[in-house]
Design a protein around this nucleic acid. Sequence first.
DNA 1: TATATTGTTACACC
DNA 2: TGGTGTAACAATAT
Length: 308
Amino acid sequence: MPELPEVETVVRELNKKLKGRLVKVVVVNSPKMVGVGPATLSPKRQIEVEKVKRFIGTIKGKEFVSVTRRAKLLIFNLSGSWSMLVHLKMTGQFIFEDAKLQERTQGFYRLLNKPHAPLVKMPSKHTHVVFKFTDGSVLYFNDVRKFGYMKLVHDKEMGQVRELQEFGPEPLNKNFTELCFFTAVKKHNRRQIKEILMDNKVVAGIGNIYSDEILFHARVRPNRKAVGIKNYELSNIYKYIKPVLLKGIQAKGSSVGDFVRTDGSVGQMGKYHFVYGKRGRKCKKCGTIIESIKVGGRTGSYCPSCQK
DNA sequence: TATATTGTTACACC
DNA sequence: TGGTGTAACAATAT
């Protein structure tokens, strides 16, 4: 489940690997996942031949200049004033294969973080878009659930991209101050704290995994309403946001579900999870059995002894 | 075959 | 108007 640290991992790896590469061939296997223009791709995305042609036509011959991120959205800056916005949603993956990796893997990858996951040959049945570069290297975009998307936007239309408008501050930036966090939380007095942490308008990029982990370290249960949270507890939550996310980036992400790095390897953050996905297991700190509850329709896990 | 999964948005209601 | 709560949606694995 790519959240900020997973997306950041992919951004850093791709930025390094794609910089300066020239697109020679684009293959679109799932037309519904691509778009051109700032508009939201509608749920009833039609299979439009023209749209696919424009997508391919626009990106062919362009150079990848840099890769950046806003919240969980990847932004590929292309030559000619175009950007490609990519959301991985639940199960999106990028695999970048150059001659060296091709030689090592022969094109086969174990793309699930399970001991007996089968080796998969790229492109697989879940590969929806392929970019081939002039030097022979290849970028694969995979998505088992097909919830993700890729959309090309001209820079002069970037202001009209809705999903970029309302994001709150980036938690790793200096402008994400304790005051700004307190103010944002107190606007949502009646909501549960886990929901608030996962609200991208309050703070960008935090999802189910990292909200659980942050709340564990801050010793606050996920279902507490904001109004009942003491200032020192809120202060603790703020205090742990940055280090937990940084730890995730340092470990190259959590390979929960389908997340893999751009060479197909798994992130190591799962080793450091205290509560996420640990229901029924013993708390690493106190041995109490981890419990889970529904918060805003999502599963939140917590230690009933460590978290109050 | 019913269910669970998550990020995001839509919508009704107060 | 805007906070709140709920549901819907995407598609697949199990």
